[in-house]
């Protein structure tokens, strides 16, 4: 009972860890390179979810402050939001770079499957 209570209290973080596991498994175990990139993106999103859920305060407003004296606990924590904001844009550029690499690999070997790729490189060496 205590365990279930803790899981429900931390449901965002638990979901983030599960998503991280799914993404990691896809990155490692898929043989298709495009699916590997999808898994990597899922891992990225999981980290962002964990970070952003740490800054949330129950019943608080978005961090756009009003004029005059400000009660700090009336707004959510702006630091995780800033970190995630930069992270999202960087994750897009990382996936664009890996997709460009995939295009070059296809141009050279004609496949994006890892096992076939190994077979064709061996054939080329022979």
């Amino acid at each position: 009972m205590d365990l279930i209570q803790r899981i429900l209290e931390n449901r965002f973080s638990v979901t983030a860890v599960i998503l991280f596991g799914i993404g990691f498994a896809n990155l490692m175990l898929q043989y298709n390179l495009v699916k590997k990139v999808v898994g990597f993106n899922i891992m990225d999103s999981a980290v962002f979810l964990l970070l952003a859920s740490q800054g949330y305060i129950e019943g608080a407003m978005p961090p756009i402050v009003a004029e005059g004296a400000v009660e700090a606990t009336a707004y959510i924590n702006p630091i995780p939001s800033g970190l995630v904001l930069t992270g999202i844009v960087v994750s897009v550029s990382v996936s664009a770079f890996s997709l460009a690499l995939i295009q070059r690999i296809y141009h050279k070997y004609g496949t994006v499957d890892l096992r076939e790729l190994v077979m064709r490189t061996e054939k080329e060496e022979d």
Binding site: L3, I7, V14
Partner: peptide, 9 residues
Amino acid sequence: VLAMPSFGQ
């Protein structure tokens, strides 16, 4: 994660 402080406090 389960040892972290609870969400939204």
